[in-house]
Computed example of a mutant assay.
Amino acid sequence: MDNASRRWRSKPLQTSNPSLIMAFFSCLAWLYVAGRLWQDAENRNILANLLMKNSVRRPKVLTVEDKLMVLGCKDLEKRIVEAEMDLTLAKSQGYLKSQLKQSGSSSDKKLLAVIGVYTGFGSHLKRNVFRGSWMPRGEEALKKLEERGVVIRFVIGRSANRGDSLDRNIDVENRLTKDFLILDGHEEAQEELPKKAKLFFSTALQNWDAEFYVKVDDKIDLDLDGLISLLESRRGQDSAYIGCMKSGDVITEAGRPWYEPEWWKFGDEKSYFRHAGGSLIILSKNLVQYVNINSASLMTYAHDDISVGSWMMGIQATYIDDNRLCCSSSRQDKVCSAA
């Protein structure tokens, strides 16, 4: 009996192991299915949110009225741009009156010319030589010249170290001679000469109303009466760009004299376009107005005469090549010569 009862008791123990294993795998299967169902639900929520956002951002269907409104705005924008271009053209041609300060003029009548003689901080002796030769000396002589319709001034900027002895010396000299046009917004330096041209023409225009504006180097002597006679013969001529016209090779090697950093813009021949030589450049009033209005966007090159020539190429300027303005010319009636 004992053996039989032991065999009877051992049978349930043998049959319980598969049940436990099945139950364990059932739990794993349930967890797996539940996890997949939860993950699918999350994915559906994310996809639904993305679809909702895309539907909000999707462009609306334009009605006929919407399309007409868009086209009307574009047409209005185009007309505004065209009006601005016409306004700039009118200003450049002198059709719009500007409020010119007459601070440098003792008369309300229009002058014949404003002549700016470039100078530098180290050119005090050269200025005194000019004052004793072709240029009037003293305030009274300058006033008499102005009565003839001509204003003449030495043109200079400011030192890189504002207010230093260089600036103070110029201020003292100007108080004595009254013959400077000081460009407070310009830093006087050789490499800044092209920018000096822009600022000179703009400042001269704002201070004096004249037929012509003349830039003169301090490396030449001037026959002032001869220049006045030449300008008198051109009085009333608009868009006049007058000088000793020339061209020349573009220097492409850095370190050489007259090197042009923008050499690659001048084509395969590497030759400058026709322009008035830098010793003496004459512009009529409407061309100076153009420079003044557009000075912020006008490109400058390594040399001031090239820069001025590039500005004139973009407008309908009348080029006047007068070899009386060629300082190296052999003509007896030339108005300038090397100093």
Rank of each mutant, 00 (worst) to 15 (best):
K109M: 00
E140D: 14
K53M: 11
C244A: 15
R79P: 04
S92H: 04
E65Y: 04
K110W: 02
K195G: 00
R274N: 14
R158S: 03
M52E: 13
W8K: 04
K74P: 02
D305W: 01
K78E: 14
E146Y: 01
D66S: 07
A254V: 00
K198S: 10
E42H: 00
G226C: 09
D225Q: 12
C244L: 01
W38V: 03
S295P: 02
M299F: 04
S159G: 06
K101L: 08
A197G: 05
S105L: 09
V33K: 12
E147I: 00
S271R: 15
G309K: 00
Q289N: 08
T15F: 05
I293H: 12
G236T: 11
M1Q: 05
S133M: 02
L181V: 01
K109E: 03
C336I: 11
N169Y: 00
S55E: 14
L47R: 00
D40C: 01
A197P: 10
V250K: 03
F273Q: 13
A197T: 03
V33E: 07
A302E: 14
N49Q: 14
R162D: 00
A204V: 07
L283P: 11
Q14L: 13
L283E: 07
S233T: 15
R235V: 03
M245I: 13
L125T: 12
V216R: 03
V70N: 13
T252K: 08
Y95G: 01
F121R: 01
E139N: 09
R57K: 11
L13M: 09
V61P: 07
S233D: 15
L283N: 08
S133N: 13
N286L: 08
K97I: 06
N3C: 11
G163A: 07
A339R: 13
G138F: 08
G120R: 02
V250N: 11
L230K: 01
V81F: 12
V172A: 05
L224K: 08
D171K: 12
A160T: 04
R324S: 06
V155D: 03
R274G: 07
K78W: 09
